[in-house]
Simulated scan of single mutants.
Amino acid sequence: MVEPGGGARLVSLRFQIGARTLFSIPRRLERVAVSLDEAVAGKVPKVPRLAGSQDGFLITSLPEMLVGEVVGRGFFYAVRQRYTRYYATFEDLRYDQWLAGLSGNARSGLRRKQKKLAQHADGMMIRSFRLPDEMAEFHALARPVAIVTYQERLMGMGLPNGPEFVAEMRALAAEDRARAWLMTLGGRAIAYLWCSAEGYALRYDYVGHDPAYSELSPGTVLHAAAFEELFAEQRFKRFDFTEGEGQHKRQFATDGVACVDLLLLRDTVANRAAVGAVEAFDRAVDVAKRLAERPAFATLARRGRRA
């Protein structure tokens, strides 16, 4: 469905090896983000009309089965990545039932981690926050943890700083659309989780823990405690683990939707050339990775580094 458009932003088509970007090709794209509620319902997203200066759309978390529904005349598409959008459902389910649904290894591992933290000499405590004034307090306590997390140091995705974000947290809390949890040891904050609501789903927005306490798995234990509260509360239907995959998401989720991030571009020579170049580069990187895993090539690589 096409609707009057909003604002486009400059998005780069990146030539990447792992997390490292070698160079990029800029394109002016309108971002269309599919919510979890829409993805679960299999609802075709509303795609706005393009302004004359725009190159196309970046549609994120589009259910793979709907790709054909959004591609219109004059456009071509390219899949940037495929993944399962994991989520946990709270409807008609109790915490103990969710816990029983984990694999045996995951369940025993979680109980072992919970026991280890509960018996820690410094004394572990978990606090939850949901009111506007509580959100301001949570932010002040969690930011020192965010500063040392790998999310902030490597990706710039720790809990945001500044009065604007605190105001947003307070506003969402005033609408009962935010939840937060903090873990402390000996009065010192070591892990946090902050979530905002979109529709019927609570979203996995910002999470982190102090790496000095990684061996205690504070993030996993904190998330399980948050789930226990959310199952009891029954305010939200689902917990949205958002885009991307990971062991923690797979373990804690009850369901998932096969999704893609889709580039939907004007069918021009320049756009096709840009996408083709990125896809060819990605294929070359994949081939190089597979070759590097072969013993003969690994030996040659080691010899080359020593030369």
Rank of each mutant, 00 (worst) to 15 (best):
E245C: 12
M65K: 15
I25H: 01
A136R: 15
M155S: 02
F231N: 12
R235A: 08
R272W: 14
Y87H: 14
Y87F: 15
K46S: 08
T242S: 15
A118R: 14
E69P: 04
E229D: 12
M135L: 14
T149F: 03
M124D: 04
D55N: 07
M1A: 11
F236M: 01
A273E: 07
P160I: 06
G52E: 14
A171C: 07
K113C: 11
V40K: 06
Y200F: 05
L99N: 06
F231V: 07
R107K: 15
V257F: 14
A180I: 10
R82E: 06
R28L: 14
Q247N: 11
A140H: 03
L263V: 03
P132L: 10
A118I: 10
W194Q: 11
A140D: 11
Q247Y: 09
E293Y: 00
Y200I: 10
R170D: 01
V67Q: 13
M183H: 13
Q151R: 12
V275P: 05
R153L: 01
T60G: 00
M183S: 09
G123Y: 04
D55E: 09
D210K: 01
E152S: 11
G304Q: 06
L50D: 00
K116M: 09
S53T: 06
A174P: 09
Q97S: 12
R9I: 10
F241K: 04
V145I: 03
V287R: 05
V269M: 09
R82M: 02
R49F: 10
E279A: 14
A296P: 00
G52K: 11
Q247G: 14
R235C: 02
G6E: 06
H139C: 13
M157G: 03
L102K: 14
T299H: 11
V221M: 05
P45I: 07
A191P: 04
R283A: 15
G6H: 14
D205F: 05
V47S: 04
M155E: 11
L263F: 14
D176E: 15
L110K: 13
E164K: 13
P144G: 07
A225S: 13
T220G: 01
S53I: 02
A224I: 00
R9D: 01
T84W: 06
R294M: 08
A100N: 14
R80G: 09
K237E: 05
D261R: 02
L291K: 13
L193M: 12
R9T: 12
A301I: 06
V287C: 01
Y206M: 07
R283N: 04
F239P: 06
P211T: 00
Y213W: 13
V70I: 13
E293N: 04
S217P: 03
R303E: 06
T149E: 07
G52Q: 08
S12C: 09
S61L: 07
V257H: 07
P160K: 10
A212C: 03
A212E: 12
A292L: 05
D92F: 11
A88K: 08
L264K: 02
E91Y: 10
R20K: 13
D133K: 12
H248S: 11
V287I: 11
R85T: 06
M125N: 11
A284R: 03
Q16M: 12
D122R: 15
P211I: 00
G68V: 05
L154K: 15
R94V: 08
R272I: 00
P26F: 06
F75Q: 07
N271E: 11
V47W: 03
A288N: 00
V285P: 01
G304Y: 13
